[in-house]
Design a protein around this nucleic acid. Sequence first.
DNA 1: CTCTCTGCAAATCGTTTGCAGGGTT
DNA 2: AACCCTGCAAACGATTTGCAGAGAG
Lengths: 151, 151
Amino acid sequence: MSSRESSRPVHVRRHSWALTRMRGAGHRNTRPRALVLGVLARADGHLTAEAVHQRATASGSLNPSTVYRALALFERLQIVHTLVIGGRVTYGLADHPHAHTVCDTCARVTALPEGELGDLAGLVRRNLVGFVPAGIIIRGRCATCPPPRHA
Amino acid sequence: MSSRESSRPVHVRRHSWALTRMRGAGHRNTRPRALVLGVLARADGHLTAEAVHQRATASGSLNPSTVYRALALFERLQIVHTLVIGGRVTYGLADHPHAHTVCDTCARVTALPEGELGDLAGLVRRNLVGFVPAGIIIRGRCATCPPPRHA
DNA sequence: CTCTCTGCAAATCGTTTGCAGGGTT
DNA sequence: AACCCTGCAAACGATTTGCAGAGAG
């Protein structure tokens, strides 16, 4: 959170990365879309559409359905990718490839930076000929969660 | 499909594995539950709740809500695992650990038997201390799908 | 016999959609 | 000016839930 590693804060760079991609595909830079991207660029982790809407609302009003439409567009353009956490669809900026761990118990999500797992993506590419990996999700139980009681 | 590798067909063994687990947790072996397990035991791949209901109906009537309740129970007991494919929740028997590839374009799912990816689970366990992996999902684009056109 | 489980039907709620006006290029 | 995008409100559809009766142990 020191935010002085570069002249441009990280979230600004992520935001403009997404913006460039969107504009490059011929889509307009509107206020609602900018609000959504701003939220996603600042989020460290994945957010539900509802959470995106709530946070975006703090900076200006916009309609939930517009959030859904924006997110659907961004997903199609591969600006965001989705992840289901605790039964809810969540969205996160797809600006750098990474794997996620998702705890089945507490629903906590951890992003694993590249290299954290050796070269997992490379392993996949090497073994699955023709398959282009876009994301890796590891479900399980995180260290701090108690094992599920057999009810 | 030769189905004579053992005296007990595979689906029977899978079914009774699940049954044992369910009974062991103190739940009753009812006809609807048996129907659902029968479907899952025979399925090679993941099915939506709706598909489970349709197939189960072929062997006897049961209510959709009962299917949902059964699947929720099985998930809680870790008898089944869920996977979101093309925006729909799908269910599969969790009798042996394996990874899945999910194609973002055609929604096709491929189960990777253990060992297919080297020891992916072992790699995860080694690098994520304390995290107990229960499943690995690799999203991406399969060899037969065209790359998404930038719309 | 007791307590769980099921069927039924209504309620829920995240998400989608049609349409007319507004904003971006 | 042309066309894309948004707000609004209604529609949608998968999943959940309350309740009374049926069935498993």
